[in-house]
């Protein structure tokens, strides 16, 4: 096992890597004099600003992106019509969908996982369905969802639901099935009853495993929501990324990537805290 390194040394190295990366990026995208082919003046007039950039959209450097980031974050929650809303509003839409889909999935997967974990019969009977459905890309469900639900907003929630349900279901079933026999025997000799045993013994015993499943699920859900919103459109950070691509706002796309990463990290840390709260050791 590697020895423990002091926090400040790792942090200093992280900052160094970041600084080197940003500096290299900044240098690489600096406009070079005389680069690019000469452009016909009439065509330049049609293209407007793009002509001055040699007919291509230049990759923005970190400084340009930072300026844009400050601009976006100075008013993240504005709404000026359906196609012009702040980045905060878009992220909130995405979070709402993930929250709804993930929450519904938890409501279904945890009780069902409990039943599967407690009943070897149910486990064997449902296993083939789970094994076939689990590897299906959640986006493959999208057309079917759009066709049957006929509402794009609910369809994307359904897609989040379907992708978050499997890890929670399997982990809950596994956690419940592997509760130590001696604890169940204690509950039996105490005549604790099914309900009390489930709530006071099996649930806390399986909670760390269930939480692991929830963390995997929320990670997948956050991956999938971006793609789903690109398909469905309307609102959300995925839609916003695609919209900025259509606008050729490369800086906005880079900012969106950063935001998606940070929000994903926050979601994982949040469930990490819950996992810590229910963890036990012997």
């Amino acid at each position: 096992m590697p020895a423990q390194v002091p926090f400040w040394r790792a942090a200093a190295l992280s900052l160094l890597i970041l600084a080197a990366f940003l500096a290299a990026w900044e240098v690489a995208v600096m406009p070079r004099a005389g680069s690019g082919p000469a452009i016909d003046p009439e065509y330049a007039a049609l293209l407007g600003q793009a002509a001055a950039q040699g007919g291509t959209t230049p990759m923005p450097g970190p400084s340009a992106i930072f300026v844009r980031l400050v601009e976006l974050l100075s008013d993240p929650f504005y709404v000026r019509g359906t196609n012009d809303q702040g980045i905060g509003v878009q992220i909130a839409y995405s979070l709402l969908r993930v929250g709804a889909g993930f929450g519904l999935a938890a409501l279904v997967a945890i009780p069902l996982g409990f039943l599967i974990g407690m009943s070897p019969l149910l486990n064997a009977a449902l296993n083939p369905f789970i094994q076939v459905l689990r590897p299906v890309s959640p986006l493959a469900w999208m057309p079917l969802a759009l066709y049957s639900i006929k509402d794009s907003a609910i369809s994307s929630i359904f897609v989040i639901f379907i992708c978050s349900v499997w890890p929670m279901l399997l982990n809950t079933a596994f956690g419940v099935a592997s509760v130590r026999r001696e604890w169940l025997n204690v509950a039996r000799t105490l005549e604790a009853g099914t309900w009390k045993t489930a709530i006071r013994v099996i649930l806390p015993a399986a909670a760390p495993t269930i939480l692991t499943g929830m963390r995997i699920s929320i990670g997948i859900a956050w991956l999938v929501i971006v793609a789903a919103e690109m398909l469905v459109g309307g609102t959300g950070i995925g839609y916003w990324v695609w919209n900025q691509w259509n606008n050729l706002s490369i800086a906005d796309i880079v900012i969106a990537i950063l935001m998606i990463g940070l929000v994903g990290l926050a979601l994982d840390r949040l469930l990490g805290l819950v996992a810590q709260a229910v963890a036990w050791r012997e």
């Binding site: 604890w183 204690v186 909670a207």
Partner: peptide
């Protein structure tokens, strides 16, 4: 026909709930 609170068991492994 089954376990009873009248017959308390002290298990070989202590069988305490760690949480």
């Amino acid at each position: 026909s089954g376990p009873s609170l009248d017959r308390a068991v002290i298990f070989q492994g202590h069988a305490l709930m760690p949480w």
